[in-house]
Amino acid sequence: MTFPSTDPKTTSTTNSSIVFDQVTKLYPGQAAPALDSLDIVVKSGELVCLVGPSGGGKTTALQLVNRLVDLSSGEIRIGDRSIMDIPAIELRRTIGYAIQQSGLFPHYTVAENIAIVPTILKWDKARITRRTAELLELVGLTPVDSWLGRYPSQLSGGQQQRVGIARALAADPPVMLMDEPFGALDPITRMAVQDEFLEIHRAVGKTTLFVTHDIDEAIKMADRIAILKPGGKLAQYDTPAEVLTHPADEFVAEFLGAERGLKRLALTTVAEVLVAKAESELPVESDLPQVEADVTLREALSVVSAAGAHGARVMERGSHLGDVTLHDLVDPPANAVGARNGEGVGS
Rank of each mutant, 00 (worst) to 15 (best):
T6H: 11
K9T: 11
T11W: 11
T13K: 14
F20T: 01
P28I: 00
Q30V: 06
P33V: 11
P33H: 09
V42K: 07
C49M: 08
A61R: 07
L62G: 00
S72Y: 13
R77Y: 03
G79R: 06
M84F: 00
I89D: 12
I89L: 15
I89F: 12
I95Q: 03
I99P: 02
G103A: 07
F105H: 05
H107Q: 08
E112L: 02
A115H: 02
P118H: 08
P118T: 09
K122D: 06
D124Y: 03
K125W: 00
A133V: 05
G140C: 01
G149K: 15
P152S: 08
L155R: 08
L155C: 06
S156W: 11
G158W: 02
G164L: 10
L169A: 10
A171Y: 14
P173D: 04
P173M: 05
P173T: 04
P187M: 03
I188W: 03
Q194G: 14
I200G: 11
A203M: 06
V204R: 11
T208A: 01
D216K: 10
D223I: 08
G232M: 01
L234Q: 11
A235I: 14
E242R: 15
H246P: 00
H246N: 09
H246W: 02
P247I: 09
D249L: 04
V252Y: 05
F255Q: 07
L262S: 12
T269A: 14
E272S: 08
L274Y: 03
P283C: 07
V284A: 07
V284E: 09
V291H: 10
V291C: 07
T296L: 10
G308N: 12
G318T: 01
S319T: 14
L321G: 09
H327W: 00
D331S: 12
V337S: 01
V345S: 08
